[in-house]
Design a protein around this nucleic acid. Structure first.
Length: 278
DNA sequence: AACAACGGCAACCGCTATTGA
DNA sequence: TTCAATAGCGGTTGCCGTTGT
C-alpha cells in the first residue's frame, strides 16, 4: 500500500498563484503568528491549494526576508565556491546567502553559473578543468587540506541548518551542543582564516562579472571522488594555506581556543561521519 | 508580422528525513 | 520499536517573455 498523498488533490488549484491567493496566505500567517501546520493551513485560510504548495509559495516568494533583485557578483562567487565544496546541496548553499532561496540558487546555477564555469573551461560538477584528469602525483600533496576543508564546510552547514531549526539552542547555554560549538568555531578567527582561501590569488580567464573566480578555480585539482565527503564535488585550490601560516596576522590565532579549534578541525573524521553533530 | 527557438523562473513531483504518538 | 504524518530537499516540468529567422 502506497503512502497517502499529502492532501486530497481533488478540487485543489494548481499553477501560478494569484495576487489574491498571496494576500490570503500572507494575511493568514501574519494574523496567526506563523503558518502552523502546512497541511491544515489551506483549509483554515480558505485556500484551494495543498499545504505543500502553500509552503513552497511562502518560502520561495512571500517570506518577508526574501531578497528580491539580481544576485550580486559576490553572491555568485560565493555560490560557486560553496557548490565546489557541497555539490548540489542547494539548501545548504542558500543558508549562507541571507534572503536567497534554494530554488533561486538552483535556478541561477542551472541557467547562468553552470554555463559560466563551462565558459571558463571548468566542469560544473567537479569544478575541475574540462577534459583533465587528476594528477596522482599531487594527490598526496593536496589531499589532506582539501579533504578537511570540504568536510568542515559540509559539517558546518549541516550544523547551521540544524541550529536554524532549533532556535532554542541559542537561548540556553546549558543546552548548547557540539554543533553549536562547531558553528562558533566556524565564526572564530580560525574559520575566518579558513574562508580567506579565495583571497590568495585573482587570476581569471573568463570575461564575466565574476572573472576573479580564478581565485577559486583549479590550479591543480584533487580527485576526491573515491573518498569524497560530500559526493561529487571537490576543492579546487592547490596552494590552499591556512591563515595561521602568516606570522604577521597569526598572533591571535595562537590563542589556546583557536589551537584547540584547529586541532579539532584537523581531527575531523575522514569517512564523512557526521555523527558528532547528533 | 508570424512563427519557432531559447532562456528564465515559478511551481510541482517524488523521495528522504524528522517527529511524535 | 514501529509507523503514519509532516516537513524539507533536489530534480524536473511547464509557462511566459524575449530573441532570432
Amino acid at each position: 500500500m502506497g503512502r497517502k498523498p499529502c492532501c486530497d488533490k481533488m478540487g485543489l488549484k494548481k499553477g501560478p498563484w494569484t495576487a489574491e491567493e498571496d494576500d490570503i496566505l500572507v494575511n493568514y500567517i501574519n494574523n496567526n503568528g506563523g503558518h502552523g501546520s502546512w497541511r491544515s493551513l489551506p483549509k483554515l485560510a480558505g485556500l484551494l491549494r495543498c499545504g505543500k504548495s502553500c509552503r513552497l509559495r511562502w518560502t520561495n516568494y512571500l517570506r518577508p526576508d526574501i531578497k528580491r533583485g539580481s544576485v550580486t557578483p559576490e553572491e555568485e562567487k560565493l555560490i560557486i565556491q560553496l557548490h565546489g565544496i557541497l555539490g548540489n546541496r542547494w539548501a545548504a548553499i542558500a543558508s549562507q546567502l541571507p534572503g536567497r532561496t534554494d530554488n533561486e540558487i538552483k535556478n541561477l546555477w542551472n541557467t547562468h553559473l553552470k554555463k559560466r564555469l563551462i565558459c571558463m573551461g571548468l566542469d560544473p560538477q567537479t569544478h575541475q578543468p574540462l577534459g583533465s584528469s587528476p594528477d596522482p602525483n599531487n594527490k598526496a600533496h593536496t589531499f589532506t587540506s582539501t579533504r578537511h576543508m570540504a568536510q568542515w564546510e559540509s559539517a558546518r552547514l549541516e550544523a547551521e541548518a540544524r541550529l536554524s531549526r532549533e532556535p532554542y539552542l541559542f537561548s540556553s547555554s546549558a543546552n548548547r551542543t557540539d554543533s553549536d560549538h562547531f558553528l562558533r568555531m566556524w565564526n572564530s578567527e580560525v574559520g575566518e582564516s579558513f574562508r580567506d582561501v579565495n583571497k590568495l590569488d585573482n587570476k581569471g580567464s573568463c570575461q564575466s562579472p565574476i572573472s576573479d573566480l580564478g581565485s577559486l578555480s583549479v590550479t591543480t585539482t584533487t580527485d576526491l571522488a573515491s573518498n569524497n565527503p560530500v559526493g561529487s564535488s571537490s576543492i579546487v585550490k592547490e596552494d590552499f594555506v591556512w591563515g595561521v601560516s602568516d606570522s604577521s596576522s597569526s598572533s591571535e590565532l595562537e590563542q589556546d581556543s583557536c589551537e584547540t579549534s584547529l586541532q579539532l578541525l584537523l581531527d575531523f573524521p575522514i569517512n564523512n561521519d557526521m555523527s558528532f553533530l547528533e
